[in-house]
Every structure is written in structure tokens, then in C-alpha cells.
Design a protein around this nucleic acid. Structure first.
Lengths: 208, 208
DNA sequence: GGCCGGATCAGCCAAAGGGATGAGAGACCG
DNA sequence: CGGTCTCTCATCCCTTTGGCTGATCCGGCC
């Protein structure tokens, strides 16, 4: 039987190299190409039509991982995309799943976990690391804690250090509305001050 | 002639595996051991007495990289420590160099750069990635922008979202003093609000 | 000894932020 | 159609923050 063909996408050579070494130990898995950027990933996917694409989300300049996933799925729905990243931020997970990712692994995952995810992906099975799954699960249980699109937008601007007045100007809404949104955000994040909100946003929500 | 012995320390198996694969291509470099935690690194260093220790700074639970460097240098000054990490935060660089690191590489470094750093380290030569060097250089040019120890301490507490009153209580100083420190910090970071200070602290100074 | 930088504190004032409450417009859904 | 959600705005009130100025103490340093 033929091996599962894999395309690795990660801006760090070391990580690609490590993944290749690990996956190389498995006879039924075959790394056929690598890419360091989202753009490059498109080209390589076209050339090799891999069964599985293992992709990092954070990728320096240019196209980010989420965008890359979307484009891949638009062009060729048959390729299964596995996210392989360092952080388990709520926002990233949701966005990746939304974009069509088949699985979500963290970089400290055990080799067996990675192998299983690759094999599962070609069979349409979705595999995710335990911490990731528990986060998704928690969001399902407490939908009240999920930010609305507008709130998320505001929060992301908040993390660059804008004042309420500036936030209002940026979003074309009154300062009063900004304060209302903020109050809701604070409640959902479980914080009481703007400072704490920024801290949790950058750290937990991965808004960097 | 005998090969340069290397100990790899990184909490991510993939990264260790990648480094091992890369360094393995060089006949004069020999990876003799790996460790996933700072504690483990101490044990392995003791057992193998490697010439060079390649170490990540961020390491999940327990001892962090900086602490590990300090202890290594205290126990056996002959081992050269190379920092190999994802971020080039000002604070981390200074702390690592302070702790006695011989070089500072970023994870997106080219293989040749890594090889050169390892070889240089055994000869007492210090090698660092370009972005890292330029940051250090910039600090030398503008010493006015370097935070004092007390200011850095305050800033790090600031990023968890404390109020001035709380900061004062934590540091056993009056609220007035907190405000003075903050004013200095704002000036040095080039920001005007606490929110922006937190944002830059977490992102640029790497206080996560 | 005089000078300087770091750390500490105080008081004052204007600006910004945060809590509470109420309320209207539009979208979506059963 | 009525309920629910999201987004929008307003007002009142109190707390917190930020800007400014000036001051003391201590440890190095020339």
C-alpha cells in the first residue's frame, strides 16, 4: 500500500527538520515537501498534492496560517490540514477549526500523538491535543464567555494600548458604547480592569 | 580529533529532534544527550560533561532557562551555554547574557549560523543572531531607555493587571512612589498610558 | 567633600476609566 | 408575532490614573 504523503509548513527550519525526522521513522508516512511561508505552501501543495498538510499558525511575514488553511481548502478540499503550533489560544483554535482544520496539535505533543493525528486525518478523523480539546469543550459549556465579533474586534484594538476615546474613533462608535462593550468583555474574561483584560487577551486569547 | 559534545535542552521534542538532525550532519559535532527540563539538564550535564549546552529559555513548568544557565555556570564554568529560543525580547537577552550565556540564537536561524555558534562557543567566541545583536547595540546607544531593576520589577507586576494601590502593597512602597516609577517607565518605553505599557511589555519585553 | 542616579515620598489638579442603570434599533429564530 | 441577541447610546457618580513639581535619603564615584 502507498504511504501517506505529507507537506510540512513551518517558518522554523528546526521544527520542519524535527517533524521530518519524527515522521520519517514511520514507514506509512512520507514527507514529500516542506514550505516556510503560506505562499510557498500553496505552490508546494499544488505540485505534490499531499494527503495531509501539517501547518504552523504563526509564520512571520505574509500570509498567516489561518489564511493558508482557508486557501488550501478552497483550492483542494481533499487535503486534510493539521494545525501544529505552540500556543493553545482560544481565538486561534476557533479560527483554525472554522477555516477547516482537521486537527489541532501542540508542539509539545508526543510523537505517537502526531502519528495518530496524521493517520486519522486521511480517514477524516479529527484529532486534537488534550489541552485544546478541553478548551473547546469549556467554550461549549459556557457560551456566555465567548466574545461577540464586535467585542473581539474591540479587544484586539485594546491590546495595542488605545484609550476609550481612540477606540471610539477607530470603530466609529461613541465612547459610551465603547464602555459598554468593555464592561461586557471584562465580565466574559473575568477581569475588572482594562489592564488585566489586555494581559489576558494577549496571553490567553493569543492576541499578539 | 574528537568531536564537540553537545547537550540539547528544550521542552519540545520536535525541536530537540530537529536540532539533533541538523547537528548530526556535521562530523565534528556530536549530540551526546538531551533534556526536557532545567532540572533534567543539570543531571545530564553532570553525567556527560558536554562542551556546549544548547538551551531554550522557555520551558514550561519548573526551572526556567535563565536559572538553568546560572546553575550550570556555577557548577561547571567550562561548559559554554548557547541560548536557542523563539523570541528576541530585550529583557531575556540581557538576563541571559548576564547569567553567562555565550551566544543567543533565534529559532529561525540558518543551520550554518547554528553550526558556527556551536564551534565558536567552544573557542570562547560569542555568536548571536543579527536581530539579537542589533537590539543589544541599540540598548548600548540609548542607555536612557533601559529600565532599572526596580522599574522592571514594577513593570512585570503591572502586566498582570494590578492597580497602583495593589502595586504599592506588593512592593511595600507608597502609591506615590509607584506613580513616579510608572512615569519613568512610560518615558522609557515611549508610551503614555498604562495600557500601552502593558502591551509593549508583554510583546517587546517578553514579559509573559 | 561634592555630584549623580536610583529609590522613596507628598500634594494638587485635570483627565480617564469603571459601575450601574436604562433604553432604542435591527437581525434572527421559532 | 414575540423573544433573544447584538450593537448602539446616554447619564450619574465615584475611583483611578497621569502630569507636574519638589523633596529626602543613600550609595558610588571623581
Amino acid at each position: 500500500m502507498s504511504a501517506i504523503t505529507v507537506l510540512l509548513v513551518d517558518d522554523h527550519l528546526v521544527v520542519r527538520s524535527g517533524l521530518k525526522a519524527l515522521l520519517g521513522t514511520q514507514p506509512d508516512i512520507d514527507v514529500v515537501a516542506e514550505a516556510a511561508t503560506g505562499e510557498d505552501a500553496m505552490v508546494k501543495a499544488e505540485q505534490h498534492s499531499p494527503a495531509v498538510v501539517v501547518m504552523d499558525l504563526a509564520m512571520g511575514e505574509g500570509m498567516d496560517g489561518i489564511e493558508a488553511i482557508k486557501q488550501l481548502r478552497r483550492r483542494n478540499g481533499k487535503q486534510a490540514v493539521l494545525v501544529f503550533t505552540t500556543y493553545d489560544s482560544d481565538a486561534d483554535i476557533v479560527r483554525a477549526v472554522d477555516a477547516g482544520a482537521m486537527g489541532y496539535l501542540l508542539k509539545d505533543a508526543a510523537p505517537e500523538e502526531i502519528f495518530a493525528a496524521v493517520r486519522g486525518a486521511v480517514q477524516g478523523k479529527s484529532v486534537m491535543s488534550a489541552p485544546v480539546a478541553s478548551r473547546l469543550f469549556q467554550q461549549l459549556r459556557n457560551p456566555d464567555e465567548v466574545l461577540t465579533p464586535r467585542e473581539a474586534e474591540l479587544l484586539s484594538l485594546l491590546t495595542v494600548g488605545l484609550s476609550n476615546r481612540e477606540l471610539g474613533r477607530r470603530l466609529f462608535i461613541s465612547e459610551a458604547t465603547v464602555k459598554t462593550h468593555l464592561a461586557h468583555i471584562y465580565a466574559k474574561l473575568g477581569v475588572e480592569t482594562r489592564a488585566a483584560a489586555i494581559a489576558t487577551a494577549i496571553r490567553r486569547e493569543g492576541m499578539r
